[in-house]
Design a protein around this nucleic acid. Structure first.
Length: 274
DNA sequence: GCTAAATGTTGAT
DNA sequence: TCAACCTTTAGCT
């Protein structure tokens, strides 16, 4: 479930559960033993998301002394649970990192990255990421930077949107859906986009990401394009092209295509995306 | 009940 | 190009 919106939601839920609290930290699985021990007994100062990366700050007082960098990868999970006076349940399976207070615990499983870093490494990480459209501290210059990057590139726009140094937080679902909504062929070189097309793409990406942040789901279809326009959006109604290979396009009825591009499945409608 | 594939990235070959 | 990460779900039996 992890595109950018998931990580921002995770940062929120970690903050409401732990921010300002002294926490116990452990690695039942053992693969994060040393790191978990460093922040054990420290105060969790705050969690923040940058694209698909999560940074959790710890310190003895108010100042952050260590960051834990977490990346969920394809199927990592980091759910927060309440528990009663008996404490959290006995760890089961591969539990990389557990954070706990007397009331709540959070269990991290299956991450691609989980390591303790310092301020300099954090700056390095953030520095290699493109603008994150879900952060409210983004500057107008970010958009220009992204336009420069795209308008100078011969690479397909479908690849550029997945490049975290071009834009942070967009994944395979948003990539496919935002290009469909814009009517742009994923294989079109970045430099072949007009400024107008880019601006529309940028705005729509922001709209879709923010909707995902609000609802916790990636829903990109307009009600009138769904098979069932009313009520809760069913999973099979949520997207225009993502994972709909062979099915009829919601707009033109012709078959949705799929191809492997850079090791990932790319979905698009050849007739709507010119 | 079992298998394959998945919203991602890194590092080795 | 591929294995690793090791969870969850869809689809098939």
């Amino acid at each position: 479930v992890p595109e950018g919106h998931t990580l921002h939601r995770l940062a929120r839920s970690l903050n409401s559960a732990f921010a300002g609290q002294v926490i116990a930290s452990s690695s039942p699985q053992g693969r994060f033993e040393d790191g978990a021990a460093i922040v054990d007994g420290m105060r969790l100062i705050g969690a923040e998301a940058w694209g698909k990366h999560l940074l959790v700050g710890f310190g003895r007082r108010r100042r952050t002394e260590h960051w834990v960098h977490v990346h969920l990868g394809l199927y990592g999970k980091f759910p927060v649970h309440n528990h009663d006076d008996d404490g959290p349940p006995e760890p089961r399976g591969a539990l990389r990192w557990r954070l706990e207070t007397t009331q709540v615990h959070a269990d991290l499983r299956g991450p691609t990255a989980c390591r303790v870093i310092d301020e300099a490494e954090r700056d390095l990480l953030i520095g290699r990421l493109g603008p994150d459209l879900l952060r409210d501290d983004d500057e107008p210059g970010d958009r220009e930077l992204m336009w420069e990057r795209i308008s100078r590139s011969r690479s397909p726009i479908g690849g550029l949107l997945m490049d975290q140094s071009v834009v942070a937080g967009v994944g395979n679902v948003y990539r496919a859906e935002v290009l469909f909504r814009a009517g742009i062929d994923p294989m079109r070189p970045g430099r072949a986009l007009s400024r107008h097309e880019f601006d529309d793409l940028w705005s729509d990406m922001r709209v879709l990401l923010r909707a995902g942040l609000r609802s916790g789901r990636i829903i990109t279809t307009r009600p009138e394009d769904r098979d069932q326009p009313k009520g809760r959006v069913r999973r099979e109604d949520a997207h225009y092209v993502y994972r709909r290979a062979g099915e009829p396009c919601r707009l033109c009825g012709s078959g949705v295509s799929v191809a492997t591009f850079q090791g990932r499945n790319l979905f698009w409608c050849p007739s709507c995306q010119g």
